[in-house]
Nucleic acid binder design. Structure first.
Lengths: 227, 227
DNA sequence: ATTAATATATTTGTATACAACTTAAGATTA
DNA sequence: TAATCTTAAGTTGTATACAAATATATTAAT
């Protein structure tokens, strides 16, 4: 018995693997809204039967990323602007709580990883798919920031809401805007790292809140201009 | 085709039926923490196969009410005091947002139903299981108040967190305290109805926040006194 | 040609047999 | 007696055949 006793069962690992793969594809718009996900095809791709696939699809439905229609198919949900704004509003308020509820200090490791992400922002333009790459980095930056949330419940809620709005970037962003957004993200990470290194937590919360607020404004603008 | 075209499929209805039944049993402590839920037994009780049962159990696991251990069984989770306090802290902050994010005015129908619940508080003592009855009313009161939340995302989050803490009442409350708690709940509903009837929303949010704060304090006390 | 009805094909939901894993009791050995 | 290994029973996870619902293509009637 020289094996390492993994606390996570093989079945759970397989679930997480498929789940995160599909969620990522939806969030990064590899599957565009309206796309039909065939259980049989997915089962073939992941070399499993329909049963574990269906478990994943059900979870994605609960999280609002998928609509399961019996006899018809499993469809990636559309990006609804009113819903997006609503969730954004809530997320902005929740960020405030990061300062209040059990904030954690940033580890050296986290700061390092943020700097890696920061540098990656400068290379977005060189990527074959800049928009997708930007969205990908946006996810990683978010998840890094979430490590600072000590209240586990708040963390789970924020993550769930994040994935519900994460599609807006690749969905609404025009290719020519990506470079500009990349610069903004770079600047934000830079500022965040500076504040976190000095344990200036309240300011960090404020910073992230501004980030969301600006995004929300742009969302609203795009709505009125009818994008 | 005289049938009413139901927007909810039969399968979805069956799911909701089983899901709500099991959740209720866990939350009202009909299933005490640690209880093993046999898929086969449940399948027999609800006259379905294991497949739809397993879908429900998976959902309950995501919501933190069930722990699924392969080869061993599905166990109702223990009530963890640190987790309870953490979730409570978050709920207290979220209540604040009710005033901010799209509050809805109370309908006459809602006020009537609250008054019915209010009166029901006076008859808790006559119930064969007062503690269980109190917990049941507590759920209904909460769900009524949630109708005032216009932001759908906030509502979903609050409901999910509520069910994660709802067990504390039947779990921690001693039988002799039920009468006292019933009185408090009665008074709170009374006050809430008064405020809502006058469209005094901010005060209502404050009221509910006090309710949670007191509950949280009592939780902390029970912890220190080692109940 | 258009429309409605019908039949066929496709897809998700359910039931069920079997595989993989866990637990606990019993046998075995020191 | 105590500890350890083995075995068997019981449970959840997976694969698969079939049922139910939906969408599509075909056909017939107007």
């Amino acid at each position: 018995m020289t094996e390492i006793m993994s606390t996570i069962s093989e079945a759970e690992q397989r679930f997480q693997w498929i789940y995160q793969a599909l969620r990522s594809r939806i969030v990064l718009l590899d599957y565009e809204p309206g796309t039909r996900l065939s259980e049989e095809q997915l089962a073939e791709e992941f070399k499993v039967s329909r049963t574990p696939i269906r478990r994943v699809l059900n979870r994605l439905e609960v999280e609002g990323l998928l609509e399961i229609r019996r006899g018809a198919g499993n469809f990636v949900t559309e990006v609804s602007m009113p819903e997006l704004l609503e969730v954004f509003e809530l997320r902005m308020e929740l960020v405030r709580l990061m300062d209040v509820l059990a904030p954690k200090a940033a580890t050296q490791d986290l700061l390092k990883r943020l700097q890696v992400l920061q540098n990656a922002c400068l290379e977005i333009a060189d990527d074959p798919k800049p928009k997708r790459r930007f969205a990908e980095l946006n996810v990683e930056v978010f998840l890094s920031f979430m490590e600072l949330v000590g209240n586990q419940a708040l963390r789970e809620v924020q993550e769930q809401l994040f994935y519900r709005t994460a599609r807006m970037w690749p969905y609404l962003l025009a290719e020519e805007q990506v470079a500009h957004e990349a610069k903004l993200l770079h600047a934000e990470i830079s500022e965040a790292v500076r504040l976190l290194a000095n344990n200036h937590y309240p300011s960090f919360g404020h910073l992230y809140r501004c980030h969301l607020a600006m995004a929300s404004q742009r969302l609203a603008m795009m709505q009125t201009t009818g994008v």
